[in-house]
Amino acid sequence: MVVNAAEQRRPVPASRRWVVGITGASGAPYGVKLCKELLAAGIHVHLVVSDAGWRVLKEELGWDASRRQEALASAFEGALQAGSMTYHPLNDIGASIASGSFRAEGMVIIPCSMGSLSAIANGASTNLLTRAADVMLKEGRPLLLVPRETPLSAIHLENMLKLARLGVRIIPAMPAFYNGPQTIEDIVAFLVGKVMDSMGIPHNLFKRWGESDE
């Protein structure tokens, strides 16, 4: 569990809490960037990562998945000066975010694997990540999924349509080029900015279409 000392001294209102899930789809930089931006905005992040998600963090970002607490503390050290984070192990079924009585503004799964998406679409709460998503659905709270897969099968599409009809925001990890990205970081920032737009959290991660150069 990684918690800023400030969080231990004062409770955080539900409007400043977001649950973030990272699963085993390619796109770990998206999830890490979102967490950093939320922390910088003073949000308390409740983070849960699937086992496959840890594997992708290792492969794509070089994290030491065998030392998870240390990896998280190192990755978010600077950002924790503004916000705070609680890390929940995947199999901790007694965690706060597993209950609808625990108030949070909503949940984002970024990236979201097709396996996790399928479990959520079919109510299969087999671990804390999918249970937390199920809580968002049953409590009528915002749930945002960032699927990262290509090509998509009919099963994938049907599961996404089913969730979209339930009010889940589906935000595919698709880059845009009208803002003139120059680096991989620019592409990651654009997608994370689109997610934060859907969360209703202000940011300056990309230049919007029609904005003046001045």
Rank of each mutant, 00 (worst) to 15 (best):
Q69D: 12
L143M: 04
V168H: 03
T86R: 13
R103V: 05
V45F: 04
E211Y: 11
P89Q: 11
R165C: 00
T183M: 02
A82S: 14
K138V: 05
D213M: 12
E70H: 10
F206S: 02
E59C: 05
W209I: 09
S66I: 00
F190G: 02
S50A: 10
E105I: 00
A73H: 04
R68G: 05
F177N: 00
G94C: 09
S101V: 13
Q8G: 13
V32I: 15
R9N: 06
G78C: 04
G193V: 05
I22A: 07
R165P: 00
G27Q: 05
H46D: 13
V3T: 14
S118M: 11
S113D: 03
R68Y: 08
A25P: 04
A14R: 13
V20W: 02
N204F: 03
A71D: 06
I120F: 09
L47K: 06
P89Y: 10
L145W: 00
A52Q: 10
V48F: 09
I155T: 12
A132Y: 10
A176P: 01
H46M: 02
G42A: 10
R9C: 01
A132I: 10
R9L: 14
S113K: 03
G100R: 03
P111I: 03
P181N: 09
A40R: 15
S125T: 14
G115C: 00
K207D: 04
G210K: 04
H203K: 14
T130G: 03
H203L: 12
G21C: 10
E60I: 09
